[in-house]
Amino acid sequence: MSSSLDSYLVLSGLLFSIGTFGFLARRNAISMLMSIELMLNAVNLTIIAFGAFEQPLHVHASVIALIVIAVAAAEATVGLAIVIAIYRNKKTPLVDEYDSMSE
């Protein structure tokens, strides 16, 4: 099982779905950001799995994953800063109350 690409990919898919659900369902902005992290992790897992099992992608996948991690870090920084800025304005972390775009 641990030597089958399929199991890693399915695991990644499940993780991604959980992240998706979290992003769509949670009301808290920070929860949504955490869900995004989960989804990014799922993607990373996919990349690493392919790198481990597919000879042409070997090592390349690791580099790509590293870059993804760096980008994720940047995204988290900016994302959280935005959440904090909005929170200061709206006095609430709940995303469904951020509806000024509908006006």
Binding site: D6, V10, L14
Partner: peptide, 30 residues
């Protein structure tokens, strides 16, 4: 969202399991 997540999971799993990867069958050490 839950339904969507389940469907996405199903689609990914289905796609993965029905695809034959040109896998080496063993983990390569990096």
């Amino acid at each position: 969202g839950a339904v969507a997540a389940v469907v996405i999971a199903a689609i990914i799993a289905g796609t993965v399991l029905t695809t034959t990867w040109p896998s080496t069958g063993a983990v390569a050490w990096t």
